[in-house]
Simulated scan of single mutants.
Amino acid sequence: MKSYLAAAIQMTSVPDLEKNLAQAEELIDLAARQGAELVGLPENFSFMGEEKEKLVQAEAIAQKTEAFLKTMAQRYQLTILGGGFPVPVAGTDKVYNTALLLDPNGQELQRYHKVHLFDVNVPDGNTYRESSTVMAGQELPSIYHSQTLGNIGLSVCYDVRFPELYRHLADKGVDVIFVPAAFTAFTGKDHWQVLLQARAIENTCYVIAPAQTGLNYARRQTHGHAMIIDPWGAILADAGEKPGVAIAEIKPSRIEQVRRQMPSLQHRVFA
């Protein structure tokens, strides 16, 4: 593993596939021009709209999104994460919320179907039932072992509230965890940053958290603050509340330093 720049992209995605892909391309280009080698796009980056509308367009969204990610990886010679988009589940009327990691040749490295679905009555009056259109993944995410970028683990949004998933990744030797999200504005203001810091601190690894921000559609407002956090819990980059890019250096020496100073993973009693 070497030191390199990573980017967490922040978008305001809407119910318009082509518009979203154009916005994503601009921000990927920005990240690449700043030297990023590992780039993450947020959950719902290619489409964010009503659930019924998403289902109707799911096949087209899936096909165009995968083709787009492959093109971006190849054009900019990046390892890129599409942080969450709908992929139809054969024989059902549902989709998987899918995160896809591709190498600079456009080859698939990891595919993860979001396990924890957001079925919540938020105190701001909004109700979310992700399970109405999404089928939960049945497998914990695996690790992609890269000699240059380190051991990379995937998760999506609501997963961040379930530390056992991240401890599983830590047991597999993870160095960098992606948490692409579309966190609600109401919950994000209190929980987003502290949960990301907790996942980084307890597993002594970097966390890269691409995010949605602003008003996406109807009453759906997202928190923003795409972040990159180091293994000590320090916030290295924060994209704020507007579309943009959070960029920071990922250093293997920092991971080693923190794990020497705080060897908590070696002190576990209940494994």
Rank of each mutant, 00 (worst) to 15 (best):
K2M: 11
K2P: 05
Y4M: 03
A6Q: 03
A7C: 09
A7Y: 04
Q10K: 00
Q10V: 06
M11H: 06
E18A: 05
K19I: 06
L21E: 07
A22D: 08
E26I: 14
L27A: 02
D29W: 14
A31K: 06
A32W: 02
G35P: 10
G35F: 07
G35E: 08
G35N: 11
G35S: 12
L38Q: 05
P42L: 01
P42D: 01
E53W: 01
V56N: 01
A58Y: 06
A60C: 14
A60D: 15
Q63H: 15
Q63N: 15
F68A: 02
T71A: 14
Q74C: 15
Q77P: 09
I80Y: 03
G91A: 12
T92E: 06
A99I: 08
A99E: 04
L102S: 00
Q107G: 14
Q107F: 15
L109F: 04
H113F: 00
H116M: 15
L117R: 02
F118P: 09
P123Q: 07
G125S: 01
M135P: 10
E139R: 11
Y144I: 02
H145C: 05
I152S: 07
G153W: 02
G153Q: 02
S155C: 09
S155T: 09
S155V: 10
V156G: 01
C157Q: 00
C157D: 05
Y166K: 02
Y166I: 04
V176M: 01
F178V: 07
P180F: 03
A181L: 10
F186Q: 07
G188Y: 05
G188C: 04
H191D: 01
Q193V: 08
A198P: 01
A198D: 10
R199W: 05
I201R: 11
I201C: 07
I201S: 12
I201H: 06
N203V: 05
A211Q: 05
Q212S: 02
Q212T: 02
T213M: 08
Y217V: 05
A218N: 15
H223C: 08
M227K: 09
D230K: 09
D230R: 09
G233P: 06
I235K: 03
A237P: 02
A239H: 05
E249Y: 04
E249L: 00
P252C: 09
P252I: 06
S253D: 08
R254D: 00
I255Y: 04
Q257A: 10
Q257S: 08
R259C: 07
R259Q: 03
R259K: 01
M262W: 13
L265G: 03
R268G: 11
